[in-house]
């Protein structure tokens, strides 16, 4: 009796697991499906199922008739420079805070860490004014510099944690060999934190690629829009052309989904590593 009961409850909860999996995944599948259909199929003949013939022209339309390639390149460029800038600045700072000997190092580290607790919205207005006053309006830099600044706190904490775990013998060996501190940092220390570097590159890339609020406020020029912003403003034009809209959305999601499928373990680590430091 007890066995049957536990079997039934097992079936019930396993069903729930698969139903939620469907809830989580099907909207995306539905999006990819309708990116390959025409309106007739989406609305009337086949709203839910697999497309009957693949209408690749939706992708050609999204790509050639609208600004999707421009947005895509902007997103890629902004994300690339943001990753580079964030990693360089935070890894250098974290190294000095964790390993070098100076009086205010703890104060400086806590100061940078404060950024973790500041919601972006809170500084939006002064930031917009600042960007205007510095005449950075509608430049790539107006987006890239704030992205770097906002990612600094978190990646500094992560790198700091890693630097604390390596032995001082590493610097000693560089010192004995007569290498400069820069050489030691670059060629001896950095290689030891490769896993942390990989994690943070993924993290910063994803957060920059998907960032919406700052882009909305800092960028208005069509030719500088990133994907999250660009996709927003052609919603109006696209309401009658769901196929092309679906295609544009699929294109925008492709890079991050690909990264996730290739490195799912690292992506989950990268995104959840904050829990250990933020709480």
């Amino acid at each position: 009796m007890k066995l049957i009961k536990s079997k039934i409850s097992r079936i019930i909860y396993q069903t729930f697991l698969w139903i939620y999996s469907l809830i989580s995944l099907y909207p995306l599948v539905w999006m990819v499906f309708y990116s390959l259909k025409n309106n007739d199929e989406i609305f009337v003949t086949n709203p839910f199922g697999f497309p009957t013939n693949f209408r690749i022209e939706n992708y050609i339309n999204a790509w050639s008739r609208y600004n999707v390639p421009r947005y895509f390149i902007n997103s890629l460029f902004v994300a690339f420079v943001t990753v580079l800038g964030t990693i360089i600045l935070s890894v250098m700072f974290a190294y000095a805070a964790a390993r070098l000997k100076w009086r205010l190092k703890d104060v400086a580290r806590i100061y940078i860490t404060l950024g973790m607790f500041i919601p972006v919205q809170v500084i939006m207005i002064p930031l917009a004014i600042l960007v205007r006053d510095l005449h950075l309006n509608n430049t790539y830099l107006s987006l890239i510099i704030p992205y770097i600044a906002f990612n600094l706190s978190f990646s500094t904490i992560v790198f700091y944690g890693f630097f604390r775990t390596i032995p001082y013998e590493l610097e000693e060996s560089g010192y004995i060999d007569g290498a400069s501190i820069y050489y030691t940092f670059f060629y001896i220390i950095l290689p030891t934190i490769k896993p942390a570097l990989a994690t943070m590159i993924i993290f910063v890339f994803l957060s920059s690629w998907n960032e919406f609020t700052m882009a909305l406020i800092l960028i208005s020029k069509e030719s500088l829009k990133t994907l999250p912003l660009g996709l927003l403003f052609f919603q109006g034009e696209f309401t009658t052309d769901w196929g092309a809209m679906g295609a544009a959305m699929t294109i925008a999601s492709f890079p991050t989904i690909l990264i996730y499928l290739l490195f799912s373990e690292q992506v989950e680590n990268a995104l959840t590593v904050g829990s250990s430091v933020k709480g």
Partner: peptide, 15 residues
């Protein structure tokens, strides 16, 4: 199951 639960996280909020 794990992959399907996590996938929406990596999408852009606009999408």
């Amino acid at each position: 199951l794990r992959v399907t639960y996590f996938i929406p996280v990596v999408l852009s909020i606009t999408v």
